[in-house]
Design a protein around this nucleic acid. Structure first.
Lengths: 359, 359
DNA sequence: TTGAAAGCGCTAACAC
DNA sequence: GTGTTAGCGCTTTCAA
């Protein structure tokens, strides 16, 4: 029997106990299942409960008593609209769910919103969080991190932030990028340019000439860029995208490729597969064949069936597994143990989007 | 009683009050800001707080006292991996955030996970939810709905479920589909076929011959299909995709188009723009020009820059606005008022993916 | 302007 | 097996 107003007389455990003629604690035992109760008492309590329309213990009261809420915050940093168009971010969430939902935890989104960078401080401050995972690798979220520290909420990071007290699940972004570039070098490419992921929040896009000296930002993007430069032994021309999405890659592709033949790179390193797809499309629009006229490599190893039969040369990273591992680390950190950092393996994959440098 | 270790020595309001030499209730007033406190007392309390490292009132205790948690559940029904690759779902979340985050609410994901359809019941039962929005239009989530009813948690639906006690934000899926088909009819098309969204959870795909008589499933898909049939005045051949994504459209496109010329439709109605993109790509692979040999229409009105310069003929729906409206309805339902249903407008948009039927 | 007291609804240690 | 009791940390009357 649904009641009309959720504020009025919803039955409580004590009412159920009373109706069943047992003590509150006995009734509690029936619902928590943690303790011996005679079958007969059990029935009486359950009957009373269903009679009164009691739907089980109030989660908030239980949380207060037990000192945990069952809620894990996911710190996103930007609008969901942007964050979730990235398959890597989504896979991360999926992996987290896989590990945490069966353990009774729910994911609370701590995201930015139209017109602001980073989550609402009020939310970070006042949500009943057992722990938080930093899903963007946000150096920008200093204030959120500070708040969580003060509240003693354990934090786990994915590819960032690089802070002494934040256990990290990571991949070897630098090494993987070196592998990509060495592949291109071995194919004879010398004019190699880059389309980067956003280096920080805020939707900025533009050139990063000779980035070597000055670039700072999200750890993963910077590491990937450094990997390229270290393999090349020099600074590299790069265009920073405003997001990791296809349309930005398309834009970046046009920026890099719509120039005189002699200026044009023969290979483009895109920091995500989605960006790479955009670059390929831009190249085709400009009449360049991939890989004959231009090699394009990506990062992530997502499915890109719509490029078919072209298959990206890329670095496969275990996207969902990152989430699972982060989930495990979160659970561990709830026991009071500081989890060890984890570095997951990536694997270089040769596709058909890269080929010998044109003569 | 031992509390979980990381919370063990955290200062409480009463410790702060003691250190400041005031009563607990006065200290509370300082933090809630709701009541007159002398500037001097205020300072003393704040100093004591920062001295002790007190980070503000415990959210759980506050929730218990106030009877609300500040948490809105978002019922997803399937794996995030699938749900969030749909821009429509993501935009919905974005709109919800926009409306709810500033009001201090957080979004808790109630999603499926690997190997299960629908959210974990334990989560729906025991999360501290103030209200829930059904973001899939899930007829499948009967059990979740029943549980929420018993707990007296207000529910708002987006395009479903169609239940008497669930206020809905909706669009005219039927009418919009009629408009699409009338457009095609006016261009001379007679052989029109459909690629549908999934009619229910579970990743099934396959033919829906002469669907008119028998199809049931998610309200929005069924409505769109019925719209096509009503405009046509007959049942229609349709292929049900396993998701609303590009690759499924591509698959469906191959199914519909890789047949003898005489069998092939001259127009395909895809139930989402992403599906439509896949159909276009399949058509091109089969050597069909769009729109000369084949017209393709979509639904949603998302950006599809990578189809450029082709522009989809589609129905634009206010994706983010749906979320905002749902957010408002949720807030209203928290006041105990049952919000009125809302139907948002859509607009038919002629692009370049549709043209006269081939002779 | 401040303080005392009464719970919010529940769990768990302990006694019977 | 079951009941008693003591809070979890806070907000909110109500009095002073």
């Amino acid at each position: 029997m649904p009641r009309s107003s959720h504020t009025s007389g919803r039955p409580t455990l004590s009412k159920v106990a009373e109706a069943a003629g047992v003590s509150i604690s006995t009734a509690s035992l029936v619902f928590s299942g943690s303790g011996p109760v005679s079958e007969r008492t059990r029935r009486r309590v359950l009957d009373a409960a269903s009679h009164l329309g009691y739907a089980g213990p109030d989660p908030v009261a239980r949380s207060l008593r037990q000192g945990r809420s069952g809620i894990i915050g996911v710190l996103i940093g930007e609008r969901l609209l942007h964050a979730f168009r990235d398959p890597v971010a989504v896979a991360l969430l999926d992996g987290l769910t896989e590990e945490l939902a069966p353990a009774g935890f729910g994911l609370l989104l701590l995201s930015g919103s139209a017109g602001r960078v980073g989550p609402m401080p009020a939310q970070v401050d006042s949500a009943p969080l057992d722990a938080v995972v930093f899903a963007s690798c946000g150096a920008e979220d200093e204030s959120a991190l500070a708040s969580l520290r003060r509240r003693d909420v354990p934090v786990v990071g994915v590819e960032g932030p690089r802070e002494a007290d934040v256990p990290l699940v990571d991949i070897d972004n630098h090494g993987a990028s070196v592998a990509l570039v060495e592949h291109l070098l071995s194919l004879g490419h010398r004019k190699i340019e880059v389309v980067t992921l956003p280096l920080r929040l805020g939707g900025h896009r533009g050139w990063l000439h000779r980035s070597r000296r000055s670039v700072e930002g999200f750890a993963n993007c910077v590491d990937r860029l450094r990997g390229v430069e270290d393999a090349l032994g020099r600074g590299v021309t790069a265009w920073e995208a405003a997001s990791g999405l296809v349309e930005e890659g398309w834009r970046g592709g046009h920026e890099l490729l719509a120039v005189a033949d002699s200026e044009r790179p023969t290979a483009v390193v895109a920091q995500s597969d989605l960006l790479a797809v955009g670059v390929v499309q831009a190249a085709r629009e400009l009449g360049l064949r991939v890989p004959e006229d231009l090699s394009v490599v990506g990062f992530d190893g997502i499915d890109t069936p719509w490029l078919s039969p072209l298959r990206l040369t890329t670095v496969e990273q275990p996207m969902t597994e990152k989430g699972r591992v982060a989930g495990r680390m979160l659970r561990e950190s709830l026991t009071g143990v500081r989890p060890d950092d984890v570095q997951l393996p990536t694997s270089f994959r040769v596709g058909t989007s890269s080929g010998p440098a044109p003569a």
